[in-house]
Amino acid sequence: MKIAVLGTGGGARAHIARLAELGHDVHVGTRDPHATLARTEPDMMGTEPFKDFLAEHPGIELHTFGDAAAASDGLVINGIDGHNAVAALSAIADQLAGKTLIDYAVPYVYRHESEHPWPTPWGVMPKLDPCDTDSLGEQIQRALPRTKVVKSFVTQEQTTVVDPKTIGGGDHTMFVAGADTGAKQQVTDLLRSYGWNDILDLGPLVRSRGMEMYAHMHSAIGFALGGHFGLKIAR
Score class of each variant (00 low, 15 high):
residue 185 Q to C: 06
residue 139 Q to I: 03
residue 4 A to S: 15
residue 73 D to T: 02
residue 9 G to W: 03
residue 97 A to P: 05
residue 169 G to N: 14
residue 122 W to M: 11
residue 134 D to E: 13
residue 45 M to Y: 15
residue 38 A to L: 07
residue 142 R to F: 02
residue 109 V to N: 09
residue 91 A to E: 10
residue 7 G to M: 08
residue 17 A to T: 11
residue 74 G to K: 03
residue 227 G to L: 06
residue 203 G to K: 05
residue 81 D to K: 01
residue 87 A to G: 03
residue 38 A to T: 06
residue 27 H to L: 09
residue 60 I to P: 04
residue 170 G to M: 12
residue 116 H to T: 05
residue 103 D to S: 14
residue 9 G to I: 13
residue 16 I to V: 15
residue 11 G to A: 15
residue 155 T to Q: 00
residue 164 P to G: 12
residue 62 L to R: 10
residue 192 R to G: 03
residue 51 K to W: 08
residue 199 I to G: 07
residue 223 F to T: 01
residue 133 T to H: 01
residue 109 V to W: 09
residue 56 E to T: 13
residue 206 V to M: 06
residue 123 G to T: 07
residue 23 G to F: 07
residue 121 P to N: 11
residue 207 R to I: 01
residue 49 P to R: 08
residue 21 E to S: 12
residue 102 I to A: 04
residue 157 E to H: 15
residue 124 V to H: 06
residue 113 E to G: 03
residue 85 A to C: 03
residue 79 G to F: 14
residue 150 V to Y: 01
residue 145 P to G: 04
residue 168 G to L: 03
residue 61 E to H: 09
residue 95 Q to P: 04
residue 148 K to V: 07
residue 115 E to Q: 08
residue 57 H to L: 15
residue 176 V to D: 04
residue 108 Y to G: 02
residue 126 P to C: 06
residue 89 L to K: 04
residue 133 T to V: 10
residue 181 T to S: 15
residue 188 T to N: 10
residue 201 D to V: 08
residue 169 G to F: 07
residue 86 V to E: 08
residue 57 H to D: 14
residue 206 V to Q: 06
residue 151 K to H: 02
residue 52 D to V: 09
residue 162 V to S: 11
residue 92 I to S: 00
residue 134 D to G: 11
residue 88 A to T: 11
residue 18 R to D: 12
residue 89 L to F: 00
residue 27 H to V: 13
residue 110 Y to K: 11
residue 220 A to F: 08
residue 32 D to F: 04
residue 235 R to F: 13
residue 189 D to K: 02
residue 40 T to P: 00
residue 175 F to D: 08
residue 155 T to M: 09
residue 81 D to W: 01
residue 172 H to K: 03
residue 138 E to N: 00
residue 29 G to C: 07
residue 29 G to Y: 08
residue 208 S to V: 09
residue 191 L to T: 06
residue 18 R to T: 14
residue 131 C to D: 05
residue 212 E to H: 09
residue 72 S to N: 05
residue 111 R to D: 10
residue 28 V to M: 01
residue 137 G to I: 11
residue 166 T to Y: 02
residue 142 R to I: 10
residue 25 D to P: 08
residue 107 P to C: 14
residue 4 A to I: 07
residue 227 G to H: 06
residue 12 A to P: 07
residue 18 R to P: 02
residue 19 L to N: 04
residue 105 A to F: 02
residue 148 K to Y: 12
residue 11 G to T: 09
residue 68 A to V: 02
residue 160 T to A: 12
residue 222 G to K: 12
residue 113 E to C: 01
residue 163 D to L: 12
residue 90 S to F: 03
residue 202 L to M: 11
residue 151 K to F: 00
residue 224 A to N: 04
residue 97 A to K: 00
residue 84 N to L: 07
residue 136 L to H: 09
residue 91 A to T: 10
residue 75 L to N: 00
residue 170 G to K: 05
residue 128 L to W: 05
residue 223 F to C: 02
residue 20 A to E: 09
residue 95 Q to I: 09
residue 93 A to K: 09
residue 39 R to S: 15
residue 175 F to E: 02
residue 5 V to Y: 05
residue 25 D to Q: 10
residue 98 G to Q: 06
residue 146 R to G: 12
